[in-house]
Design a binder for these strands. Structure first.
Ligand SMILES: [Mn+2]
Ligand SMILES: [Mn+2]
Ligand SMILES: [Zn+2]
Ligand SMILES: [Zn+2]
Lengths: 140, 140
DNA sequence: TTCTGAATTGCAAAACTATTGCATTTGCAA
DNA sequence: TTGCAAATGCAATAGTTTTGCAATTCAGAA
């Protein structure tokens, strides 16, 4: 049984071509993917179905939305034990200014901050922009 | 001479009603403002002019773009010596889940991170979501 | 103060991004 | 194999940001 199929089973979701292709792309690329990038790879699939699948996957704890400062949401696989009840995706994200790819740095937690009196924190987002390992030293 | 006018002079920008009203709102609110919020306050001004003014101000180092938790862009006054050559806006931002207001925490720097080998950082973004000082204990 | 050219604006249109309604198709468990 | 809820495709709508261009306005020079 393929990895993508296992993920769908575990989430209690039906196996469909759109879902399998989207999971395959995410697994293969190992980074956050935008709606428009899915659209390019899934030629036979309707735009709307991709939007709906992204929402379903996010709700089920398969994906988390990554804010990378461009005006487009990207989505990355949740690595741990996220599910419908609770997401735990508090790690640093890296956006490459050269190739525009966005990656989860799962191993890097977000440093805690002491806030001014009166503020209370629920969630934090730490995003770094720069040049990724693939692009360093690679001209252009 | 009003504060807003002084800012325009210092930046070498012409005085126009749109620019003055936008700076006035930013100075009065002391927080990051979204395009749609400017649009509500500046009734006589065209949407497109607001977009263009935001870009101009950003380029001149008067504003910096703030990404809040919903991937929506907001804009806040630069507090220090930003200009056309260089922005220095590396501080933490706070987005309140209750009132949706976004503020710069200018006094809080962003903790540095050691990145995996090969990555190089240019800029960092640290955003906290939670409840702000104004909203804590204020029902609703 | 008046004049003049460049900067700024408004309006229309286009380009992008995301959501909704509904009829049809599909996956899966009984 | 069948029944039915879940998922999809398509058309339409809604929301956001950019672009082109003609008309207006600002600020410095005369
Ligand atoms: Mn992530
Ligand atoms: Mn700020
Ligand atoms: Zn890169
Ligand atoms: Zn608040």
């Amino acid at each position: 049984m393929t990895r993508a199929l296992q993920i769908l089973k575990d989430a209690g979701l039906r196996k469909t071509p759109c879902r399998l292709q989207m999971l395959d792309l995410l697994l293969q690329e190992g980074r956050a993917i935008s709606h428009s990038e899915f659209e390019l790879h899934l030629e036979a699939i309707d735009r709307v179905t991709i939007y709906r699948t992204l929402h379903t996957f996010e709700r089920k704890g398969l994906l988390h939305k990554v804010i990378d400062g461009q005006n487009q949401s990207k989505f990355a696989l949740c690595s741990h034990s996220c599910d419908e009840k609770e997401h735990r995706d508090e790690h640093i994200h890296f956006h490459c200014e050269n190739c525009d790819k966005t990656r989860c740095l799962d191993e890097l937690g977000i440093p805690e901050i002491v806030l001014p009196v009166g503020y209370s924190a629920h969630r934090a987002n730490y995003m770094i922009e720069g040049i990724c390992a693939e692009c360093v030293g690679a001209g252009t």
